[in-house]
């Protein structure tokens, strides 16, 4: 069972997308900047994405536990380094304000729905759907790359469904939809369905 969310900014959110190994290290692209990471830092950054079976926000404690299990003895200074470089950000697990601090960019193919389950819209490979979403959350995730932050993507989708006469699909309003998107983020990150970029408001000064 997952532990109860801790108060405060304990939710770990990875920023950027891996470009894989290059030479002796690994590259992670955040915005236009390529960050060269040593292998240990890259492993820790990868661990910050969470695990597919873990649907709750992925916390500092989860990262430290997985780092220890992976044999990473120096997780704390490595994590501090990732935070300083803007490759990880922290948020309160139950605070929708996180949606204003990050932009999401879909990475996995969008598969749509099926005749057997028309209410579930999936992302994954054609052979293996990896995450199933309701239609409006799917709209947010697949269109979020066009918006400066996730909150703007949520507001746009909620507005569209409201104007289309189906506000119930969005949960009634942008706040309800935002909570659904926030709750979906741990799984979306864990399976690599999206990567995050810091929104202008979330960029460290």
């Amino acid at each position: 069972m997952s532990p109860a969310p801790l108060p405060g900014p304990s939710w770990v959110l990875p920023v950027g997308r891996s470009l894989g190994p290059r030479g002796a290290g690994y590259d992670v692209l955040a915005g236009r900047q390529v960050h060269e990471l040593d292998p240990m830092s890259w492993v820790l950054w990868s661990l910050c994405h969470g695990l597919p079976g873990h649907r709750a926000p992925w916390t500092l404690a989860d990262v430290e536990l997985q780092a220890t299990a992976s044999g990473l003895a120096d997780a704390v200074p490595l994590l501090d380094g990732l935070l300083e470089r803007g490759l990880v950000t922290l948020a309160a697990p139950d605070d929708d304000a996180v949606l204003t601090r990050v932009r999401a960019v879909v990475q996995l193919p969008a598969l749509g729905n099926t005749a057997d389950d028309p209410d579930t819209f999936s992302l994954g490979t054609p052979e293996v759907p990896l995450v199933g979403l309701d239609r409006v959350t799917y709209d947010v995730v697949t269109s979020a790359h066009r918006f400066p932050d996730l909150a703007a993507a949520v507001a746009s989708a909620a507005g569209l469904w409201f104007r289309a006469g189906a506000p119930a699909l969005a949960g009634g309003d942008a706040a309800a939809l935002g909570a659904r998107v926030r709750e979906a983020l741990p799984l979306l990150l864990a399976v690599g369905a999206v990567h995050l970029e810091l929104a202008p408001a979330g960029t460290p000064s």
């Binding site: 193919p109 969008a110 749509g112 729905n113 005749a115 028309p118 819209f121 269109s143």
Partner: peptide
């Protein structure tokens, strides 16, 4: 446009593929 996958409605066969080209 961005392939948004197949669209099925009411248990029927595929109506086609949805392509994201902007707002809709």
């Amino acid at each position: 446009g961005q392939r948004l996958g197949e669209l099925h409605e009411d248990g029927a066969g595929s109506r086609g593929v949805v392509v994201g080209t902007g707002e809709r």
